[in-house]
Simulated scan of single mutants.
Amino acid sequence: MPYPDRLLTDDEEVVRHLHPHGLTIFWPVVLFLLVVGGASFGAALVPPGPQQGMVRLGIVGLAGLLLVVLVVVPLLRWRTTHYVVTTHRLLFREGILARRGRDLGLSRITDVSYSQTLWERIVRSGTLTIETAGDGGATVLRQIPDSGGVQQLLAYMIEEDADRRAQEHAGYLRSDDDRPPADGWHSTAVL
């Protein structure tokens, strides 16, 4: 699903749209299988009798509650967490019911570094640390897929943004040189 265009400016384009690494949903999937298997096994073990239906209903209800807490919430949290690199900024959005977001202009980013444990190197994941000018502290993003590649992409995009801004500034200065002086008099050279 592409990032909504309504959140971008007119000349801004999405370069990369990421969610946390796919392994963050590994344990919810395992727990789904365990809860469904356990509930099925438990329901099959209920002895026949007048309370059999109520006990099975209780097992299904408990399994449903466990599935919501242990599976659905982590999956929704993964799905609603967005890390978006655009041509002008870096956007973070997260939250299921309550949302939280932050936008960092590429021109404000002073340093981007990444770190990986041995396991993260194997699964191509890691932690990005982003330092910005005039900010109270570093922004730390965990479980980023291909953290080394994202770090290199951000460094490249920061350079591209600086070049774009320099060209816009040079074009602005050039257009100022073409205007006549403010007093209306034109100087002419006399030889």
Rank of each mutant, 00 (worst) to 15 (best):
Y3N: 03
L8A: 04
L8T: 05
T9W: 15
D10L: 05
D11L: 07
E12V: 07
E12H: 08
V14T: 14
V15L: 07
V15S: 03
V15E: 05
V15H: 08
H19V: 04
H21S: 02
G22Y: 06
T24V: 08
P28R: 06
V29T: 01
V29K: 02
L31I: 00
L33N: 04
L34V: 11
V36K: 12
G37A: 12
G38C: 02
A39V: 03
A39L: 03
S40M: 05
A44P: 03
L45A: 05
V46F: 10
P50S: 12
Q51G: 02
Q51I: 07
G53W: 12
V55I: 14
R56Q: 15
G58A: 12
V60W: 15
L65I: 14
L66P: 02
V68C: 05
V68M: 08
V69N: 10
L70E: 10
P74F: 11
L75I: 14
R77M: 04
W78Q: 03
T80L: 15
Y83P: 01
Y83A: 00
V85P: 01
T86C: 06
T86A: 01
R89T: 04
L91E: 04
F92L: 06
R93M: 04
R93K: 14
R93C: 00
E94N: 13
L104W: 07
L106H: 10
S107Y: 08
I109K: 03
T110P: 00
D111G: 00
Q116A: 02
S125V: 08
I130Q: 06
T132C: 14
G134W: 09
G134K: 10
D135N: 09
G136R: 14
A138L: 04
L141D: 08
D146L: 03
V150E: 07
Q151I: 00
Q152A: 07
L154G: 04
A155Y: 05
Y156A: 09
M157D: 00
I158D: 00
D161Y: 11
D161Q: 11
A166C: 01
Q167F: 01
A170I: 06
Y172K: 10
L173M: 14
D178N: 08
R179D: 04
R179V: 03
D183H: 13
G184M: 03
T188S: 14
T188W: 15
T188H: 15
V190Q: 15
